[in-house]
């Protein structure tokens, strides 16, 4: 078996008496989409924060590409190729779509220190940014101010920025949040393609998307992983049916 790209071992994080992450162990293997599901308050966002470096865990280790990254800040993990998308779009709204994608390309190249030459004339990063926009289907609106995009287009732009990082793994925090069914089908198709680039750790509430996409699913309840398995195994598990799917057969 190949080594996992990203692995989390025995991760714990408490806020006062609340154990938001309680001994979580999971891994992300090459070429897979690993979904994390769980009811509200299960600790999904806290877990994502720790994996990306925004929060430091009380105990446990996070390994990425074979290296221990537990103590590294967000930007160091990003430079290693950990590409994150946000639940609530975090984009420079006054800038154009292309400028947002270009930011990712500049960050990936580690070269923001140009003071005189227009950024858009930088052929390398610009090509990278434009390719990413094409892939997510935003090629036509590259010159539009980001604030004028629809909600769905902003979600696509989040993915495009992640793509410019030449990622080794994606971490996506509810990419479908707030999308209509057409939008979420479109994004589902895009994510299915993305796993060829790099494996995806996907936190998502949209069960249709999760069942369509995921190779493996981990179920998080009260900060603990209660099970990890294939779509069929998770569908069949009574605890999950109770928590999520209602009791209908």
């Amino acid at each position: 078996m190949t080594d996992p790209v990203l692995s989390v071992e025995g991760l714990c994080k408490s806020f006062g008496a609340l154990r938001a992450t309680d001994g979580v162990t999971l891994d992300l293997r090459p070429g897979e989409i690993h979904a994390i599901i769980g009811p509200n308050g299960a600790g999904k966002s806290t877990l994502i924060q720790q994996i990306c470096g925004g929060l430091s865990p009380d105990a446990g280790r996070i390994r990425f590409l074979g290296a221990d990254v537990t103590a590294l800040p967000v930007r160091a993990r990003a430079r290693m190729g950990l590409a994150r998308t946000f639940q609530i779009s975090s984009l420079a709204m006054e800038d154009t779509v292309l400028q947002n994608a270009l930011l990712g390309a500049l960050g990936a190249a580690g070269r923001p220190w140009g003071f005189l030459r227009p950024a858009l004339r930088d052929a390398g990063p610009r090509t990278l940014a434009e390719q990413a926009l094409e892939r997510v289907g935003l090629g036509d609106v590259a010159a539009v101010r980001t604030a004028e995009l629809s909600h769905g287009q902003r979600r696509q732009l989040e993915v495009a920025v992640a793509l410019t990082l030449s990622p080794r793994a994606f971490v996506m925090d509810e990419p479908m949040a707030g999308l209509g069914s057409a939008g979420s089908q479109q994004l589902t198709a895009l994510l299915a393609e993305l796993k060829a680039d790099a494996p995806v750790l996907l936190v998502e509430h949209d069960m249709d998307a999760v069942f369509a996409l995921a190779d493996r699913i981990s179920v998080l309840v009260y900060g603990q992983v209660v099970m990890t398995g294939t779509v069929e195994e998770v569908r069949a598990d009574p605890r999950v049916r109770e928590a999520y799917l209602g009791d209908a057969p």
Binding site: Q99, L106, L116
Partner: peptide, 9 residues
């Protein structure tokens, strides 16, 4: 510039 773009963001 690249710096301006990054700073703006």
């Amino acid at each position: 510039s690249r710096f301006g773009l990054a700073l703006n963001a």
